[in-house]
Structure formats: C-alpha cells, structure tokens
Simulated scan of single mutants.
Amino acid sequence: MDTTTGTLDEALQRLHVTGPERLGWLSNHAPMAVEALAAHGQAGSVHRWLDLYRDKLEEFPSAVEPVTADNWRPALGDMRRAADWIGYFGREIAERPWRDVLAEWWPRLLPGVYGGATHPVIRVGHAVRTLLATESTGPRLTELAHALGYWAARYHPVADLAPLPATGSAAAALDTVAPIDGQGGGYTDRLDRVTALPTWAAAITDPDEAHRRLTELVRAATHRYAAHGHGDAVMLVHSATAPNAVLRTLPALPRTLWAESLRAAWSASAAVTAMYASPAPVAYTPAGTFAPEEVFQRALAHGDEHVIKLTDTALDVGDERALAAALRSAELVEPMA
C-alpha cells in the first residue's frame, strides 16, 4: 500500500471532481483500480494508468437538493441525487468517525447491493481496505463518502425471491444456480428476471462462521471464473469481486452485522452467476506457472480495470486456481487501448 508518496491521495483527488458513472449507467472504475494498484506496490503506475482511463470519465454531476437525516428515504435509489448523497456522506464523515457512519448505513444499504451491477459496494470495499490499512487522510475519507453516496443513489433491492435449497460448499451451491430465462438485455433487465436463488447462507448466525463462509464464497467464485468466465468475461468478474468487497469491509463493522453481510454477498454473487451463466464450463490451464506478483504485473500490462480488480481479488485468495482465474480474465477481456 502506498503510504509515503501520496500517490493514491493525488489520484483520488483527481477523481473526486468526476462522476461515479458515465453515459448514464457505466460505472467509474478508476477509484477501485488505482486503489488496487497502490495496494500491490504499483503506485508508480497509478497516474499513467489514469491518463489512459481519463476519456472514460465525466464531470461530477449537479446537485438537486441536500440529503438530510430527515429526508433521505425518498432519495434512496435515485441516481439523479448522486451528488446530493455524496455531499451527505461527506458531511457525515467530517463530523463523525467513519466507522460509525459505515455501521449506521451498511444495514440500510445492504438490501440494495445489486444496484449499479454491484460496483457501489465494490467501491466501498476498496475504500475501506485503504482506511483500515493506512492513515485516514482527507482524500481517503472523501473516497468513502463518494462510494457510499454512489451506493445510496444506485440502491436497487430485489424483492420476493423464491428460496431454493442449497447445501454443502460454496462451490457446490454456485453450481446449483439456475441461469435466467433468456440471456439478452442489459443488467437491470436481466436482474428483473432473477426470481429464485439458492439460500446457501440463510441459516448462518454466528459471526465467525459468517466470516468463514464468506471467505469460502470468494474463493469459490474466483476459482469458478477460470472455467465459466467465457459466459460474460466482464460481468462474471463481479461474482467474485462483490463478495470480496463485503469480506474486506467486515473488520470495520460490528460483528452483529457479519451474518447479514454474508447473506447479501451470497445473493449478489448468485444473482450475477444466474444472469451471466456460461453454457458449459471450459477447462483452463495457464501456459506456465507464475508468482502472484507476476500475475499482477500481467494485469497491469493488460490494463483493463476488470482484469486488475479480479487479479486483486485472486491475490487475496492466493492459491494457484485463483491465479489461473486472473490469467484467464486477461485472455477473455479486451485489453485497454
């Protein structure tokens, strides 16, 4: 993690004058990617990578009306209020410890974890990792405000999902997820067609077991990408990175929130799996054996933000199958121009 040169802070300051999305629905991945680069000792590449990504950035959106403690409910899930939400969390984090703000809003936002193709919770996970590992500088606290504000603006719950049985390992449970009917349409259209999911994590109440299960889920979803990523090379990345964002956030949360965090992470991962399922697995073996730092260097050379983020998660998992998934993503996803 870059804690001495200030490169990450500089990059975040560059990004905080830009919006959380572009073209009305595509997420700004830059804050997440630069945090991953800094976390893996690549601070020297941060600004060069941002220079390549800058054409995908839009200006920060206009405010509509301040969000307050009294009027926030109608603004929840209204992307037109993104600036209002970011302003609200900026004020909250300036006045209170960031962990207290996170603990208050985490259970409110969890039901809407699906919103923005899970990018908001992923952005929160990157912001929290930095705050847990390093000094709580102004730009890093502001990044958490942007991430939480984006989540509140893109809040999208899914109601009335029929529960399906699921037992055994996380990998086995993911294998039981049925694809949605028809694979056409955008993310929201597909999400609307998710009507039932296995309830693999429903009975868990013990915080330590929730942590263990969530770690297992991240490992299983990452491993699964190597053989199933061809279903949708970009979107299936989130089946692993979304639950990993939740896992990274657990240490900053009260233990009483860990079990419901597991359930939300499972539901998000399973939903993405259902929406972008591959027709059949394809065996994949990397052409050679690579150390973790070599795999991350390959992701950086590839340049795509999804490859960088999946590789970041694969390094958290840390085994050969996870590294194979990262290498597979670099084969499947178009490199950054």
Rank of each mutant, 00 (worst) to 15 (best):
R212Q: 15
E135C: 01
S278R: 00
A203M: 05
T176N: 05
G168N: 03
V282L: 02
W98S: 10
D2A: 04
A145E: 08
H16S: 12
N71D: 15
V64E: 15
L262M: 10
R193A: 13
T215R: 14
R263M: 05
R123A: 12
A274E: 00
L110E: 00
E135I: 05
L315I: 03
L23C: 06
H126C: 08
V307L: 11
L197H: 00
R81S: 15
T222W: 02
P335H: 05
A274K: 00
G231K: 00
A36T: 07
A33C: 09
P97F: 09
S267P: 12
D78F: 11
R80N: 13
A94K: 08
T289I: 01
T205G: 06
M1C: 02
E65D: 12
L262E: 04
P243F: 06
W200L: 05
A173D: 04
A170R: 01
W85M: 10
G6V: 08
A152I: 06
R73A: 05
G112H: 05
D175L: 13
V158H: 09
V46T: 01
S62A: 13
I93W: 06
D78K: 11
T256E: 11
A324C: 04
F89H: 05
A171S: 00
L257T: 11
E59G: 14
H47N: 00
V17M: 08
M79N: 14
L50R: 07
Y284Q: 11
P107K: 11
A324L: 03
L110H: 00
G90V: 07
G303P: 02
E334S: 02
P254T: 10
T199S: 13
R96C: 00
Y155L: 10
T118S: 05
A268E: 06
P165C: 06
G116Q: 01
S27G: 07
L110Q: 00
V121I: 13
V46F: 04
L197C: 04
D312C: 11
A268T: 03
A173E: 07
R193K: 09
L257V: 07
L141M: 12
A145W: 11
H302V: 06
Q297G: 14
R140H: 02
A145P: 11
H126S: 13
Q297F: 08
L52A: 14
D316K: 06
R328Y: 03
R54H: 14
P31M: 07
G303K: 10
Q13V: 13
A63H: 14
L23S: 11
S269K: 10
L109Q: 03
R248D: 04
A245N: 01
D208R: 15
R91L: 07
E59T: 15
S269R: 08
L253M: 14
Y155G: 03
A178Y: 11
S169Q: 07
A245Q: 00
P120F: 01
H223S: 12
W151H: 13
R14Q: 09
D55P: 01
R91P: 10
E59C: 15
A264H: 01
T199K: 11
P97T: 05
